[in-house]
Design a protein around this nucleic acid. Structure first.
Lengths: 214, 214, 214, 214
DNA sequence: GATGAATGAGTGTTCATTCAT
DNA sequence: AATGAATGAACACTCATTCAT
């Protein structure tokens, strides 16, 4: 936390550790968490197994060292945006929900995840067998809470029915699925952003309609 | 040998094989394809390793014996529905796309997949490492082709712009994601059906709007 | 032995057994005794494992059923020729050893072994792991005894030194090696015969010289 | 690391590896390559299976570690002798072929192979199933080329007919067979040498006669 | 910091053989 | 005469992990 040594990330000071992380990233990317071989990671890094166990507790810790921080940051971005959003959340004169903040989050999140493209690939498509295999659920749960609150506020203020939990859950899930889909299929941030935004708009357009349905 | 029982599936006549399939289903369900241990499956079935290899070629064949048929049937349901649909596809007077056939497919598909609940769980969430790990893509590809054709027909008849491939791909993907999500989260067929249908309606409502966007 | 049923080999009366023997020959030829798989032999023969064990005691018995008789016959040919030879063995006026009988044996042996080409291939190059893996030694031993007697007779009658055992052993061995070599490298009986004879002549030419050496 | 002991082979520094090699030699010798059990080798060496795989890639590598070097050296001895031989090859006044160099090779080769007696036993009689199973052919091919050249030189200089390929091949094969035979049957180098030399002389005596035959 | 030797349980798979029917 | 289900030990090999140095 302290900007010692000029603020450089302390972890990367060590060359061996860096080589291991790089090699690990390649191996996990190629084979996925379970099939990845620590033996191989060490060999590719030009380092012995012992060295790996000096820096990392075990296989899972090595994987976590790659993906944990980017995930935490993502979660923090969402947390922060959502709390801000709730504070100044207002409804426009036309009585429609304002999703402009949501689009901001999306942009921010996409930017962050393309900054750490490899790490999010690992997290979203290569983590089966590790403790991160359910990380999507974690993210969903996060945005689900947000939409639950948002929906409740809306239905209170417009005297419409309360949205079913499963609708909210699904909406949140859908959003994350789209996000994952983008990250998996679009190589460039620009393309992803464009697709994502137009799809989000499409989804959000029908959102208020949900409150009128029986 | 004699068709006494009215042509009941011959495969399951054998007790050992049945016990193995049951035991395998439990093991795969619990640990996923890769971490599942054949030794364990045999032990739980009260059978030796050799017996397993009498009935199944290898680990993958054992897994396939559980999930292949349900998957094939699902694909056939989609294939059949889609081909019928295209034949008598018409647009209502109000110029809107008619998704009533799609809803029929969804109902049929959901019914089938809840009849083989465990098998689809295996297929969709436990197949990593087997040749079925990409089966979702296979299903998506299937419905994507369908929506591509549907979209082209619509834009021709209404003189609107042709839909981008990625929009079509996303729409198809989304639909499958919802399906997977339902299957994973809703225990009962009724609940799943209800959720699925209302979400499909929501998605389809905005569909024609896509053709007007820039 | 009795020419019942028209003299047909009784073994081949049974179709299943014949198919097994044929399939076994192919498998042993392709993979050698050890790597041959009984499972595979049965599958190729279109027969179950149990059937194999009805006709044959075990893997070795199956192999023996293919090669034993041809080997016995070969040994008998040698035995018969050699005993005849010793009876009317004489030395020509020029005092040289008469190998014309030996050439007769060679011709007979080669004829027999090309009549059962596959079986001798099995015996000589594919039998490792079975009780026939040392059958070459058996044949060598046979002809060694013959040459021992022949050499002793010669040295007695010509008052030359007695040949060392190792020379006799080597001479016998050499002859068999040549035979094996021919069988392995020459596809046609004619070619083999021609090569074999000229080589034998070459070897035999120097034979008498051995008795003069110190 | 320090060249204390005068550059002694570093491989054998390790005790476990040495024990494994010793145990492996015994097992391969007793059962042959295919039937040898790595489990057993490890047990006899008082070491776990993992240890074996730390030092050797697989079963074949373990076998190769025993026999490869001795074989290479043998091939090199032949290569070197043969190339020297061709350079100063001359024919004596009496017009006979000079095989004195060949005898030198034989002596050298026999000395080398008795220095590594066990390894050559493995190579020549226990290697079936490994990549060395055809190593005799390799050696034959080597000396065959040599005799082909030698024969051609002779026939050119004496204006005699060119020797058939199969005669040359057979002569080379014969020589190697004798060598293998010696190594397999004579325990001591001295006995082997004596036998080998006298047999070689015998064979070479008739060699020039081959050029006169039709 | 890092080495490299070693562990030991685990993997999927193959095999010759048996035996009730 | 032949089936086909079942055995159970064995196989080569891989793995994450440990630890004295």
């Amino acid at each position: 936390m302290l900007p010692l040594c000029g603020g450089e990330n302390l972890k990367n000071d060590n060359e061996t550790q860096s080589k291991l992380l790089l090699s690990a990233k390649r191996e996990f990317m190629e084979k996925g968490y379970m099939k990845a071989s620590l033996r191989n990671i060490c060999k590719e890094a030009g380092v012995t197994t012992g060295a790996l166990y000096f820096f990392f507790q075990d296989k899972e810790d090595l994987f976590a060292s790659l993906v944990e921080e980017p995930l935490e940051i993502l979660l923090n971005i969402m947390k922060q945006h959502y709390s801000e959003e709730l504070v100044d959340s207002e409804f426009k004169e036309n009585g429609k929900l304002d999703f402009s903040d949501d689009l901001e989050v999306v942009k921010h999140v996409i930017h962050h995840s393309y900054q750490h493209y490899d790490e999010f690939q690992l997290l979203l498509t290569k983590s089966q067998g590790s403790r991160f295999e359910k990380c999507i659920d974690q993210i969903v749960e996060f945005s689900e809470k947000h939409y639950r609150i948002l929906a409740d506020m809306y239905s209170e203020q417009t005297n419409t029915k309360k949205l079913d939990d499963y609708i909210v859950h699904w909406f949140a899930h859908m959003q994350i699925d789209i996000f994952v889909h983008m990250l998996t299929h679009e190589k460039s941030e620009e393309a992803a952003l464009q697709s994502m935004v137009s799809i989000m708009k499409y989804l959000m357009a029908g959102w208020s309609g949900l409150f009128d349905e029986i």
